[in-house]
């Protein structure tokens, strides 16, 4: 069976910025203006990836890594320095308007809504702007109202909404026209746990019921763990990892650490441990074990531990994605780990 066309196809995408060098001291601004000196910033360097229909891809990296720059190119806001991108069959920066009809964009940092209009009016305006058929609009609005719980603030002007309410409004606005692709730049930034849950729930529902493809950037690895099977890691403009989130964990997660507290009369012999396990006696009743991720999962490790001692307390450090990414940055592997 031929595989369907990818929703997003990016080849050697590169974007550099010229940044005027700042001059310190007197007349610094004037001198900066007068001199033609500038630094080149490689915001995005030679990035290549595809996104298939229905995928939910997490795009992560440190501040300034190049996530937003990539996203702006995919939306057609920014023209790349070199390389190519095809989104839903169109070149974003050339066919911006046509593409706008088929994608939904959310920038967590800034609202897409009209600040002085009640949320309801904004949504109705968008309905006209995207020429959404009446029944589709009604259905999408109903879903959004239910899952995102919009009703309490539908009549409130956007500028009076709290951050979490505004973000939910923005999300509803982005999906009214049944976009095939949803591009989300930090959709959960600054939100409390409940609001994050709502948004993740909404995105999951949308992906399941409509098969909407999603690309989202985030600094909250909970988003990745709950939503994305696939993750791409960008660092200093370069794609450092592209693949399964579990594979990332395997590659860079380090060992699973489990600390145990055993009953007073018990002891654990550290000789003859199974392969892939190391242990350490910490205090009278506590031990610390490390399990090789290639051979063990946290589940199998705990099951094994229960067979060798009566455990009173167990603390598991399964290596958060965050930890892994830190390791990834620290590790000196320069090539991208493409798992395609």
């Amino acid at each position: 069976m031929p595989s369907p066309d990818p929703i997003v196809s990016v080849t050697c995408l590169t974007r550099t910025f010229q940044r005027r060098r700042l001059h310190r001291g007197r007349f610094g601004a004037l001198r900066a203006l007068a001199s033609r000196q500038s630094d080149t910033v490689n915001a995005v360097s030679d990035i290549t990836f595809d996104i298939q229909p229905g995928e939910m891809v997490g795009y992560i990296g440190q501040n300034g890594a190049g996530k937003s720059t990539t996203i702006k190119m995919l939306c057609g806001i920014l023209v790349p320095t070199s390389g190519s991108a095809t989104v839903l069959g169109a070149t974003p920066w050339r066919q911006r308007k046509q593409l706008a009809h088929r994608i939904g964009v959310v920038f967590g940092q800034r609202t897409q809504l009209w600040w002085d209009l009640p949320l309801r009016d904004s949504l109705h305006l968008l309905r006209h702007m995207y020429r959404v058929p009446g029944d589709r609009f009604a259905e999408n609005l109903a879903t959004a109202r239910e899952v995102l719980d919009l009703d309490p603030f539908l009549a409130t002007p956007v500028r009076q909404l709290s951050l979490g309410q505004r973000m939910r409004g923005d999300l509803a606005a982005a999906i009214l026209h049944d976009p095939d692709l949803l591009i989300l730049d930090e959709p959960t930034i600054g939100l409390d746990l409940l609001a994050k849950d709502r948004i993740r729930d909404f995105l999951r529902t949308l992906n399941r019921t409509h098969g909407t493809t999603m690309l989202l950037t985030t600094h909250d690895l909970g988003d990745i763990e709950e939503l994305c099977e696939r993750v791409m890691v960008i660092d200093a403009g370069r794609l450092r990892f592209d693949g399964n989130a579990t594979a990332l964990q395997h590659q860079f997660g380090g060992d699973i650490e489990i600390g145990v507290d055993v009953a007073h009369d018990q002891t654990i012999a550290l000789a003859n441990l199974p392969t892939g396990v190391t242990g350490e006696h910490l205090t009278a009743s506590t031990w610390m074990f490390r399990f090789d991720r290639g051979l063990w999962t946290s589940g199998s490790a705990v099951r094994w531990l229960t067979t060798i001692a009566e455990l009173r307390d167990v603390s598991i450090n399964d290596g958060s994605l965050e930890q892994m990414i830190r390791d990834l940055y620290l590790s000196d592997k320069t090539s991208a780990h493409n798992v395609n």
Partner: peptide, 13 residues
Amino acid sequence: RTGDFDRLLTRPI
């Protein structure tokens, strides 16, 4: 200046 102009470029009009 703030980059808010971006949002005008994501709409189909």
